[in-house]
Design a protein around this nucleic acid. Sequence first.
DNA 1: TCTTGATATGTAACCGGTTACACATTAAGA
DNA 2: TCTTAATGTGTAACCGGTTACATATCAAGA
Lengths: 325, 325
Amino acid sequence: MATIKQVAKHANVSVATVSRVMNKSGYVSEEAKEAVEQAIAELNYAPNRVARSLYKKSSNLIGLIMPDITNPFFPQLARAIEDVANQHGYQVVLCNTDEQLEKEQTYLVALQTMHVDGLIITTNHSHNPNYETLDLPMVALDRIVKAGIDAVVSDGYEGGKLAADTLLKRGATRLAHIAGPDHLKTVKRRTEGFVEVAGDKLVGMTESTFTFKDALKASQQLFDHAWPFDGIFAANDVIAAAVLQEAVRRHIRVPEELQVIGYDGIELGEMTSPPLTTIVQPIYEMGRVATERLLDLIEKKDTRPKEMLLPVTLLERQTTKREER
Amino acid sequence: MATIKQVAKHANVSVATVSRVMNKSGYVSEEAKEAVEQAIAELNYAPNRVARSLYKKSSNLIGLIMPDITNPFFPQLARAIEDVANQHGYQVVLCNTDEQLEKEQTYLVALQTMHVDGLIITTNHSHNPNYETLDLPMVALDRIVKAGIDAVVSDGYEGGKLAADTLLKRGATRLAHIAGPDHLKTVKRRTEGFVEVAGDKLVGMTESTFTFKDALKASQQLFDHAWPFDGIFAANDVIAAAVLQEAVRRHIRVPEELQVIGYDGIELGEMTSPPLTTIVQPIYEMGRVATERLLDLIEKKDTRPKEMLLPVTLLERQTTKREER
DNA sequence: TCTTGATATGTAACCGGTTACACATTAAGA
DNA sequence: TCTTAATGTGTAACCGGTTACATATCAAGA
């Protein structure tokens, strides 16, 4: 790789002039500019970002901290973040923390010492001391870390209500629910919204993590103890897929005997049999908004922290009945 | 963040001494060592990786180039890579190229100018001129870029044979197949293996991309034109899920009337109804091996290029019949 | 003609590490 | 006692950019 010195020599100017034409800063004569541009082209020169970072104290890198990219909700988020970052000349560093504070801490110092310009956090520890001392632009995604940190979340409460409402409208009279992990505020809201609208129609409820195995166990337990119910809302699509599988195993017909609604809108819902009706979070959009916000923060366009609440929608596939009109 | 100078002053030594104790290089007295260590602790010092990179021309960063993290095969790979990299003090930069040469090229210069130490490539252009001129350690994963570049792949040929063999053993007599995209060599091998063993039992075959929508179309077409068949092998699990969904829609009983085998062993296969029998690639293992190999390359432990072929296994779930004994 | 501000360009300091080199000091061996 | 090698430490150059500052030229306005 050529250096700026070589370019300068090649174009018969000083390094300062080369730097000026690259950054379009200061005064440069047309003549010099052309010479430099030609030299750059001829030497196939691209400036060393490490050197630039050192002086500028900015790396055009953003850190993406998530529990586990393997969880099917996150890839879309990561994709959106990467897309937007890339469009603005940033790269993203991927960090899987498994929600372990220690891993998180390790990543945080690594990220800091490499001078990332900002952080997107998809993690849960609202009390996490790691972030408090951190003087870095950051935005929380799908999680609420603490007041004072920007957050982008979708409207889980409305989503929960929408799920209950839909089930009721489609003629369900005995509702069940599988909630997500208790420590996730954004997930809890779904349950709250659902319970609120379900009222005394709610006949069974349990809780599960977001792994399929756990979800399957929870489903079995629910079917064993709370059956019969004719409408069920799962806190996410993975859990809904487990419910579906368990229903098939028990020869319960979906949606005739049991209507099922999931939450998230991940691709998985399209692939189940029958395809899953679900409350769609605008996942890609959330990633996009969060990244754009972070970029604004980095460029100091706006520093008042705020929470962005994105709307959810119902996607009717085939685990709910057609609405009668 | 403290700098090495501050640490040096605090410990009453020179920066060289501080550097020496941090890197355990050269001679340092016990006394000086303790003073420095205490200063580091008190100032909460961590060396600036950017500065270190500039001098060392090595960033402890590795670039991960993949088509689309949203494709359910890749997150596990990414996870493995990230895990191993992290264990060795490296971070990974995520790049989604959508298989577009232009994006790839952009990433490549970005990655080079930030002095990544190596590349893991999960992409397809065997003729890709971008990589030829690149003087960087790299390993191709699940893809064969060209001779001379290390590659880690699973044994698709054996996998295809295993699928046909299994179907035949379980009593299928009329076989069908949906192949993957033609330009993926590693995927083509699955088809070759399958066709070889299926022989004249093969009654229908078509091709599909790895998106669910396309797979659904391909399935429908196959059912329309080649039915009846009683065993089908799909080039990956997403396609198999589509076949399954279409079979359910047509009230074809699986596995009684039709046995289905997928390929990959992604989590999705666990979530379909019924759960999918599939040929499992050791995905995480592949990511691990590739990354360890890359790290060896970076540290110049071994430079002879080689291709690593990992074995696949059959995972029997419920879309195939139990073997009669 | 003289002053002044806009234009143009180069030199060198700086960012925060690493390390070559010079220079002590000390201990072991002759 | 004199060499010599091992040990210990500091100074400064270096990595490849950016930019403050000094300097020079030139045209416009007084």
